[in-house]
């Protein structure tokens, strides 16, 4: 991996959090590889994936830390929250317990990131409508009360997966534009990178980075 010049203008750091088995790694895999991983192994500690996507005309590299959901791993995954620009907080719409635990995940996210960190709530497994255990409306209300973005998505069908990462990125970019996110501040979760001199060698849109999630 060579250093500059970069073919992207910004790096945004993301974390994905939520209970065990809600589909965090599958969302990441769907996002970086555009494939559903049926036999997804559990995550031990943290996994990492990247993808470059276009946000309001700017190339942005997302660096995504996918954390293990089992309670015992929180002791090690907490250190990865620091300096996240975006957080995907995931629950499973077919398992109410994963929704009930959101406040604990939100507390961690609020305490361990900075006030500008954009948090998006994701109700995963939206394809399993028949087994739904959490209504869209109540999750939407929870998100509004807590100032979170909200989407229901399916890592299996790919529905809203792209959008989830993009919506958070747009909000982060907006925060940069209106000055509420100070890029010079430590732990903003955003790095500005000098772009390649204009020569038309930019890659096509949303090309997955080679080092995407292999799990």
């Amino acid at each position: 991996m060579t250093a500059a010049p970069y073919n992207y203008s910004y790096i945004f750091k993301y974390i994905i959090i939520g209970d065990m088995g809600v589909g965090k790694s599958c969302l990441l895999h769907q996002f970086t590889e555009k494939k559903f991983m049926a036999d997804c192994p559990h995550t031990i500690g943290v996994e990492f994936g990247t993808r470059i996507m276009e946000v309001n005309g700017q190339k942005v590299k997302l660096q995504i830390w996918d954390t293990a959901g089992q309670e015992r791993f929180r002791a090690v995954t907490r250190s990865y929250y620091r300096g996240a620009a975006g957080a995907l907080m995931v629950y499973d719409i077919t398992r109410r317990s994963t929704y009930n635990h959101l406040s604990s995940w939100l507390t961690d996210a609020r305490n361990l990131t900075n006030p500008n960190t954009v948090i998006i709530l994701i109700g995963n497994k939206a394809d399993l409508e028949a087994q739904r255990d959490v209504t869209y409306e109540e999750a939407k209300q929870f998100a509004e009360e807590n100032g979170l973005l909200f989407l229901e998505a399916s890592a299996k069908t790919g529905e809203n997966v792209e959008e989830a990462f993009l919506e958070a990125a747009k909000r982060i970019y907006q925060n940069i534009q209106d000055g509420s996110l100070d890029l010079n501040a430590a732990e903003s979760g955003v790095q500005h990178k000098p772009s390649v001199p204009q020569g038309g060698r930019l890659n096509s849109d949303t090309q997955p980075a080679k080092e995407g999630c292999s799990c």
Partner: peptide, 15 residues
């Protein structure tokens, strides 16, 4: 040879 950066080094070593 890797960029001396937490994410890049983690990515390399974890695979």
């Amino acid at each position: 040879r890797t960029e001396c950066d937490m994410a890049m080094v983690h990515l390399l070593l974890s695979r």
